[in-house]
């Protein structure tokens, strides 16, 4: 049943597959970003309470969701890397981690920018913001660990172990922060419950979420290809590829 997957354990095949998929992801990203942003920022009705400042939701929510999605992907890849010893899965972790960290950072910055008009402060120790901040720390730890090893095979294995440790810990961290928050601050904080959104606001949001997902995919594929090339640079197929490119450019 899984036999069709086997060729892709070979870096060369995976590189080609990533190259084939990449344009589709890029096109989908461009289309959804143009449609979603124009619709969301220009045509969606303003919120009756928050006015126009609610529009940052079209960046903030997709970025936050994809930050977590990126980590889940890394965790699955880490599991595959450790159980079936597939090195490409380790490269996948190394490729996604910085993208996930940047998405987390975007979610934090847009959250702060949204918090200023809504809560009157750039930063409040809201449970979601706090666990997003800790997610960023975990991402940075994984990236730092990966970069600390000069032998990238070991680096990949170490990073996948840390990713799995993190994925067990992250739900615990999340719920502990939620309880800490409710016990410490109670209802003084503006509750951030999901409002039932009007469809004309919701549709652009869904489009933007799809857009961020394909954006994450496109960036990861790019970095994945680079990672394969960097790690396999001593292989004949890479040098063949490079010479082909050089000669094609002449």
């Amino acid at each position: 049943m899984w036999k069709w997957l086997h060729p892709y354990a070979k870096p060369e095949k995976s590189y080609q597959l990533a190259g084939k998929l990449l344009p589709w992801f890029v096109v989908a990203t461009v289309i959804t970003f143009v449609v979603g942003l124009v619709w969301g920022l220009l045509f969606a009705p303003a919120d009756y309470q928050q006015g126009d400042s609610f529009r940052i939701i079209y960046i903030h929510v997709p970025a936050a969701m994809m930050a977590m999605a990126a980590y889940s992907t890394m965790a699955i890849a880490a599991f595959i890397a450790l159980v079936w010893q597939i090195r490409l899965a380790e490269m996948n972790i190394a490729a996604i981690a910085p993208v996930g960290a940047v998405f987390t950072f975007i979610a934090l910055v847009t959250g702060a920018a949204w918090g200023k008009p809504m809560w009157g402060a750039w930063w409040v120790w809201d449970a979601r913001l706090t666990s997003e901040l800790i997610l960023l720390f975990v991402y940075l730890g994984i990236i730092a660990l990966y970069n600390a090893f000069s032998d990238k095979v070991l680096a990949g294995r170490a990073a996948s172990i840390l990713t799995l440790v993190g994925v067990i810990n992250l739900p615990i961290i999340h719920y502990s922060v939620v309880w800490w928050n409710t016990l410490h601050q109670g209802a003084t904080l503006m509750k951030f419950d999901k409002p039932s959104m009007a469809p004309e606001m919701l549709w652009p949001l869904i489009i933007m979420i799809i857009g961020f997902a394909t954006f994450l995919g496109a960036l990861s594929l790019l970095r994945f290809r680079n990672e394969i090339l960097a790690r396999e640079s001593h292989r004949p197929w890479v040098s063949a590829l490079v010479t082909e490119k050089l000669e094609g450019g002449k």
Binding site: L140, G141, A144, L145, A148, I161, V165, G166, S176, V177
Partner: peptide
């Protein structure tokens, strides 16, 4: 255990461990 083979493992250890000990 993850950082023991590295020359500058100390600071990295705190970066890895402190977020995980928050709960």
């Amino acid at each position: 255990a993850l950082t023991v083979g590295l020359r500058k493992g100390g600071i990295l250890l705190s970066l890895i461990m402190l977020p995980l000990s928050i709960p």
